[in-house]
């Protein structure tokens, strides 16, 4: 099967101030994802996980420069026009961000924020978009979806907000969903529910999932294959089982050992 996503020799640099050399964020990353595949992206804070995810969407901040190639769904994301990338975002590739409170517009009602995805991609009937959004919110496990859709983000709990972000990302059944630490701000019970929801949607629509996390236990329960990112380099690309049994790279060993020792530390990766 042809790959859905193929990244070849991707490097990302932060442009330095005039005269100073630029700082590398990602160095020579190459990997591929098949349609429907679930891949974990594991790495400590500051290892470049989020930059990698943003590069795929073409959403790197202007100060970051990307080189190499990102083939997605028949498009070359780095050289595609702004318009072409825009029509892919939200429809073919979607992203769930960490920190569900700050990722939602504080002045816009939940229902409208979800419906907006459909409206941005060819749906012109606002009522139909609102109904689609309501259905998706209910499917994402939001109780009283109709009532909640009229609320503002700060009126919801953290778990509910994360479900809203998931509903937003999955509304148009994208081919690839990138979830950046989707559970790191949730308590363990809600964490499990959110992961189960992701898996269910994946089975139903054959969506590929790139799960970004610093927490091996989250990745181990979800992903067949795991990439380990350390200091901007891809140091492991192995089946998850093999990573847990016999991690090769010292950094991978450290991450595995951290899970064996006990609960992961309370931190938010970047």
């Amino acid at each position: 099967m042809s790959p859905l996503l193929a990244i070849c020799g991707l490097s990302v640099d932060a442009a330095g101030a005039r005269g100073t050399p630029s700082t590398p964020i990602l160095r020579d990353i190459s990997f591929g994802m098949r349609p429907g595949e679930t891949v974990g992206l594991l790495g400590a804070s500051g290892s470049g996980k989020t930059s990698l995810a943003l590069a795929v969407l073409g959403l790197l901040p202007p100060a970051l420069r990307a080189h190499g190639a990102i083939h997605f769904d028949g498009h070359e994301m780095l050289s595609a026009s702004r318009g072409a990338r825009r029509t892919l975002r939200g429809r073919r590739v979607a992203m769930v961000f960490q920190e569900p409170l700050s990722a939602l517009n504080p002045r816009m009602r939940i229902g409208a924020q979800v419906a907006e995805v459909a409206l941005a991609h060819g749906e012109h009937n606002t009522q139909r978009a609102a109904r689609t959004a309501l259905d998706m919110l209910a499917r994402a496990g939001l109780t009283d979806a109709e009532d909640q859709a009229r609320r503002l983000p700060h009126e919801l709990s953290g778990g509910e907000r994360q479900r809203v972000l998931l509903a937003m990302a999955m509304l148009l059944a994208p081919a690839l969903l990138i979830a950046d630490e989707p559970t790191s701000s949730l308590d363990v019970t809600v964490q499990a529910q959110v992961l189960a929801l992701l898996r269910a949607e994946q089975r139903q629509h054959g969506m590929a999932l790139l799960l970004v996390s610093h927490d091996l236990s989250v990745i181990a329960t979800t992903c067949e294959r795991t990439l380990v990112l350390h200091d901007g380099r891809l140091v492991e690309d192995v089946p998850t089982r093999q990573l847990i049994v016999a991690p090769e790279h010292p950094q991978a060993r450290a991450l595995v050992a951290a899970v064996r020792r006990g609960p992961p530390p309370l931190e938010h990766g970047t």
């Binding site: 825009r86 975002r89 961000f97 941005a120």
Partner: peptide, 12 residues
């Protein structure tokens, strides 16, 4: 952050 979310939705 929510501006990034809006862009990720595919809004112009």
């Amino acid at each position: 952050d929510f501006i990034r979310t809006a862009r990720a939705k595919g809004l112009g």
